[in-house]
């Protein structure tokens, strides 16, 4: 590479009274984290794949649904959550762990040595991105299942409280899963390990425990982060779950609180490690 300018920076005259602060503020860190997320091409592909998964799964599962005519079409519309939640898990885990794997953490934390604002910024940006992607994914799933709903005579009436809960629950659950992913990623600092842990906690453990039902296993199942998915189950499914379980029967919102508690605990653990340890 030739033609390199040989002159160094000259100390530029600074305005005597610049009203804006010259240093790090939380708002600036949030803007920086938003910039980081949107500056990766893979973010767009991940969002696209997640939306496609939500719509395709909802459509595919909807083909086999045999609801009574006149029932709500919401369970079919949100059925894609089971697969598409993995996209949100990846979104969060990647934001949390890629910093460390790629070495960007050195640049990031040299710029923000107080460190915690970075994690707070990542949490805000991840939640906002997950919310937007979840709304789009829900819209795509509703559109993809429109034909199925029409054929089966299912209504999608958002003024019906249960329908509203399921639709809002889809968005809230996915946002919660993204934050669990962020907490895991920032805590273990390796995207692969964070993903494996996330899939275990959200999906695999629940299925393993289900093979050996009992009071202990059912209680454990109700306390796994996957309990958040109760917010997108209709009352009939929740009753069926309660009937088959010897453990506690969290309702849709207490189930969601379990997921929120997991996200909060993981982020707190990540913050503790970040605050106390070294960044290398």
């Amino acid at each position: 590479m030739g033609g390199v300018p040989a002159t160094a920076t000259a100390r530029r005259a600074r305005p005597a009274r610049d009203p804006r602060p010259r240093g790090v503020t939380l708002g600036r860190v949030v803007a920086s984290e938003a910039d980081k997320l949107t500056s990766l091409r893979s973010t767009g592909w991940l969002a696209l794949a997640t939306v496609a998964a939500a719509a395709a799964t909802a459509w595919g599962l909807g083909m086999f649904a045999r609801p009574e005519p006149g029932a709500s079409g919401a369970p079919i519309a949100v059925a894609g959550a089971v697969l598409s939640q993995l996209g949100f898990l990846v979104l969060g885990a990647r934001t949390g762990a890629d910093e460390y794997r790629s070495g960007t953490a050195r640049s990031t934390f040299a710029a923000v040595p107080r460190r915690l604002p970075v994690l707070a910024g990542q949490a805000l940006v991840t939640a906002a991105a997950a919310l937007v992607v979840a709304v789009i994914a829900l819209g795509a799933a509703v559109a993809a299942t429109a034909g199925l709903r029409a054929a089966a005579g299912l209504a999608l009436d958002v003024t019906d409280p249960e329908t509203a809960r399921l639709l809002a629950g889809f968005v809230l659950h996915q946002t919660g899963v993204a934050l669990v992913g962020l907490g895991l990623g920032a805590l273990v600092r390796r995207p692969d390990a964070a993903l494996v842990a996330g899939v275990l906690a959200l999906v695999v453990l629940d299925h393993l425990l289900a093979t050996n039902p009992g009071r202990v296993a059912d209680t454990a199942r109700a306390l796994l982060p996957g309990a958040g998915a109760r917010v997108l189950l209709d009352d009939g499914r929740l009753d069926a779950l309660a009937a088959g379980s010897l453990g506690p029967h969290p309702g849709p919102w207490s189930g969601y609180l379990v997921l929120a508690a997991w996200a909060a605990a993981l982020l707190a653990a990540a913050a503790y490690r970040l605050r106390r340890g070294d960044v290398t």
Binding site: R22, V24, T25, R28, V29, S32, D35, S39, A111, V112
Partner: peptide, 14 residues
Amino acid sequence: TAFRHLTALARTHG
């Protein structure tokens, strides 16, 4: 990209 890396860093300090 190099530009976006620098922009993201610059944003932390306005």
